[in-house]
Design a protein around this nucleic acid. Structure first.
Lengths: 232, 232
DNA sequence: ACCTGAACACCGTTCAAGT
DNA sequence: ACCTGAACACCGTTCAAGT
């Protein structure tokens, strides 16, 4: 039976929880150990008893975010033949988990791969599924990596957009912003219409469309692999 | 005719060049304005006359890296029908540019989209090409974004691997690293073989395979779009 | 075992003042 | 116009010392 001494003022799990609160309130770049310590009425060096350094804390945050999103509960699909649907739903789950906290994408990206166990576990599961579906080990690895990269990249960009708004109409932002718009004109296109048409799709639909490009590519690659395997 | 006063000790372009030298030597996280200033025998605040703040400098670095990689010289393909090949070669060019300097991926990712003009220009070109190839404006935007995201994500991961090596055989790294390997065992797979098989492919081949997943997906989406357009 | 106090070695940035 | 000097308001981290 684990007994916690009464004098202990801070619990590592509570610290991680508080850090995520700070994350949501102020963003990743604003998290400081000093601020975190003050939340517990403790001096900054006290945290070093429980965490090796700041990076260590961030990796625990990443793990907590993924776990909170249920990523660690994902399991193999019942039927390997449904690998494409499984992969899609997994990608959705990861995106949802990363979106559940401000800068979630950057936090998890900043954690080293192996420490963010939930993600490492998921990557292995994806490899297993792709392998069972018919990809060789090398391409199972690459396929899983491509899907994970896509989700990360998409969410990071999505969350970057949540930051300070830039209004292209604001004259103070100057020529830098106007530049790409003039390029549209150059090719006889309406920049405003492009942006508007894109926003006719929901964020989920936009995410899904890019994801399906990769899934479709995987299906096609799988057919090709099976064909060349049958040929010899 | 622009005359540079003799007393001027620092030239902004030279500062950016020196910053990129520091980048290659020590990595993005180690670049400090103080170190940069000392390279020119100047006090740190002097840089604020030429750059608004550090972010401003980083964006100029991003622009310089892309320009140095010839990204600003890329033009539309002669024949729109070759959009897939053009897109592939553009992706290769961007990857090569980002790889040409340490942490190049992170530098460009850290620059705001519109300030990294070369990249904004490229994004527009990609949209134009996809649009001419037959995608509507919304999907041209999404398709270009997916390709750019993939290149970024891939290169950032590639360059993260250039950092401090982690040897899974080292017992001091402990259970965290061992964890995913034991998962392989759980599903009757050989973790070592997976890593080895992947490394039979060159880095270029690995990059290309993931890229072609997306390109293949785009081709398929285009066919679908044309079919449904013809149907009505 | 767990935390404090004090300090170290830095940062980016501002701003009055110099030339 | 371009830069210095001095300072401000912070950081993460170390480490001896306390309890």
């Amino acid at each position: 039976m684990k007994v916690r001494a009464k004098k202990q003022r801070i619990d590592p799990e509570e610290v991680v929880r508080a850090a995520i609160e700070l994350l949501d309130a102020d963003g990743l770049d604003q998290i400081t150990l000093r601020q975190l310590a003050s939340k517990f009425g403790v001096q900054p060096p006290a945290l070093y008893w429980h965490f090796k350094d700041k990076q260590d804390l961030v990796e625990d945050m990443a793990q907590a975010i993924l776990k909170g999103g249920g990523i660690d509960e994902i399991d193999l699909p019942a039927d390997t033949a449904t690998w494409a649907e499984w992969l899609t739903s997994v990608a959705y789950s990861v995106r949802r988990a990363l979106l559940s906290h401000r800068d979630g994408g950057r936090v998890v990206a900043g954690a080293s791969f192996f420490r963010a166990r939930a993600l490492a576990r998921l990557a292995v599961l994806m490899m297993v599924v792709l392998n069972r579906a018919g990809f060789d080990s090398a391409h199972s690895t690459l396929g899983a990596g491509t899907v994970i990269d896509y989700v990360w990249g998409y969410v990071i960009e999505e969350q970057a957009g949540e930051g300070p708004e830039v209004d292209p109409g604001d004259p103070s932002v100057g020529e830098e912003v106007a530049f790409p718009f003039s390029l549209f004109d150059l090719y006889g296109l309406d920049a405003g219409a492009f942006a508007k048409d894109r926003d006719k799709l929901t964020a989920d639909e936009q995410f899904d469309w890019g994801l399906q490009l990769i899934i479709t590519g995987l299906k096609s690659a799988l057919k090709e692999a099976k064909r060349s395997a049958a040929a010899k």
